[in-house]
C-alpha cells in the first residue's frame, strides 16, 4: 500500500512547480485580497493564453532534444501578416487564419528540414529563423496595423462565463485544446514515444529503427504551427499587428518550459508541467502588479533565477540518476575498474 504514497522522482520537478504556484498564489491571496477574486485567477489564463500555446509547442521541440528560438518572432510575423492581409487586401479572417497557421507550420517545417538534412545545430537555425521572421514582419509593415475585421473582433470580445460573474476568453479554450492535443501526442502516440526517445539519445533512437528524421521535421512543424496560433491569439487579443510584438518572448517560453520541469537537453519532462511554468511566470507578474512597489524588471530577474534553480535541480537529479545506475562518466574515476558498484565521487584533480 505504501507504494501509492511514493512519488516517482521523475515527477518531482513538475510537482515542485505546481506546489510553487499554489503556494505563491495562496500567499498572494492572503496578502492582497484582490488576488482572491476568481476573476484574477482566470485573468492569469486569459493574459497568458498565447504564451501557453507557444510554450506547449516548444515543450515538444525541447523534449526532442532541440530548441526553437523563433517563437517570439513568428508570433510577431503572424500578427503583422494577418493584420496586413485583413486590412490591406480585404481578405476575410476565415481565410487568413488557416493561411497563417499554414505559414507557421511551413516555416517550422523548413527549419526542421534544414536541421535534419544539413545537420546544423537547431539553436543556430532557429536563431537565424528568429531574425528572418522579425525582419520579414518589418518588411510587411514598419508601423502597427489595427485590425477591424468583424469576425476577428467578435472573437476577441467573446466571453465565456464560468462561475458567477467571472469569465474566460475564447483564447483560453484554444490554449486548453492545444494543451490536450499535445498531451495526447506526447504520451499516447507512437510519435510521442519517438520524440522522448530522440531526446534521450538520438543515436539509440535511430539504431532502434525509429523515424528520427521525419519526427524531427514534424516536431518543428508543430512548433511553428503553435507559434503561429499563438501569434493569432496575441493579435486577436490586441486587435493589431506589429513587428515589435512579443519581443524576447522565446526566452519567456523557454523559461516556462524549464520551470515546468522539462529537461533542456531533452527526453525528460511533461507537457502538462509547462502549463504551470507559464502560470508561475504569470503569477510573478501579477504579484509584482499587486505589490505596486516593485518594478516590472524584477519579473525578468526572478524568472532568470527560477530558471537557474530548475536547471540546477534537474542536473542534480540527472547526476543522481547516473550514480544510481552506476554508469558514471569515465572521466570522474579514470583509474577505478567499472565493477558496477557505486563508489564515492572523486573529483578530478
Amino acid at each position: 500500500m505504501s507504494r501509492s504514497f511514493k512519488i516517482d522522482r521523475k515527477y518531482v520537478p513538475m510537482l515542485a512547480t505546481i506546489c510553487l504556484f499554489v503556494a505563491g498564489y495562496v500567499i498572494g491571496a492572503i496578502q492582497y485580497p484582490g488576488m482572491a477574486r476568481p476573476q484574477t485567477f482566470f485573468n492569469l489564463f486569459i493574459d497568458n493564453a498565447f504564451l501557453l500555446i507557444a510554450s506547449t509547442g516548444l515543450t515538444l521541440v525541447i523534449l526532442s532534444g532541440g530548441i526553437d528560438l523563433s517563437v517570439g518572432a513568428v508570433i510577431a510575423l503572424t500578427s503583422v501578416a494577418a493584420a496586413y492581409l485583413m486590412e490591406h487586401t480585404g481578405l476575410s479572417s476565415l481565410i487568413v487564419i488557416p493561411l497563417m497557421l499554414l505559414m507557421g507550420a511551413a516555416f517550422g517545417a523548413l527549419m526542421g528540414g534544414i536541421i535534419h538534412v544539413f545537420k546544423v545545430q537547431p539553436f543556430i537555425v532557429t536563431l537565424a529563423g528568429m531574425f528572418f521572421a522579425r525582419g520579414m514582419a518589418f518588411f510587411i509593415s514598419l508601423d502597427a496595423i489595427t485590425i477591424t475585421d468583424p469576425f476577428y473582433r467578435t472573437l476577441s470580445l467573446a466571453r465565456i462565463h464560468l462561475i458567477g460573474k467571472s469569465f474566460v476568453s475564447v483564447h483560453v479554450i484554444i490554449a486548453f485544446v492545444v494543451l490536450a492535443v499535445f498531451m495526447y501526442l506526447a504520451h499516447l502516440t507512437h510519435f510521442g514515444r519517438t520524440v522522448y526517445a530522440m531526446g534521450g539519445n538520438e543515436q539509440s533512437a535511430r539504431l532502434m529503427g525509429l523515424a528520427v528524421g521525419r519526427t524531427k521535421v514534424l516536431v518543428y512543424t508543430l512548433g511553428g504551427f503553435c507559434s503561429a496560433l499563438a501569434g493569432l491569439v496575441f493579435s486577436n487579443n490586441l486587435l493589431s499587428g506589429h513587428g515589435l510584438y512579443a519581443n524576447g518572448l522565446e526566452m519567456e517560453a523557454i523559461a516556462a518550459v524549464i520551470i515546468g520541469g522539462t529537461l533542456l537537453t531533452g527526453g525528460v519532462g511533461y507537457v502538462f508541467g509547462t502549463m504551470f511554468g507559464v502560470l508561475v511566470n504569470g503569477l510573478i507578474q501579477v504579484l509584482i502588479i499587486f505589490n505596486g512597489e516593485l518594478s516590472s524588471w524584477w519579473t525578468r530577474i526572478v524568472i532568470g533565477l527560477l530558471t537557474l534553480v530548475f536547471i540546477l535541480v534537474q542536473s542534480t537529479f540527472a547526476s543522481m540518476r547516473r550514480r544510481q545506475a552506476s554508469i558514471k562518466p569515465a572521466r570522474k574515476r579514470p583509474a577505478a575498474a567499472s565493477d558496477g558498484l557505486a563508489a564515492p565521487d572523486t573529483p578530478p584533480s
Binding site: F118, K119, V120, V125, A128, F131, F132, G135, F138, G243
Partner: peptide, 22 residues
C-alpha cells in the same frame, strides 16, 4: 529592422555552405 531578415538569409547560406552535408 527589416535588414535583419536579409542578414539571417545570408548567414543561413554561409552556414549551409560550411556544413559537411552540403
Amino acid at each position: 529592422m527589416a535588414a535583419q531578415a536579409v542578414k539571417a538569409v545570408v548567414v543561413m547560406v554561409v552556414i549551409l555552405l560550411y556544413s559537411e552535408q552540403f
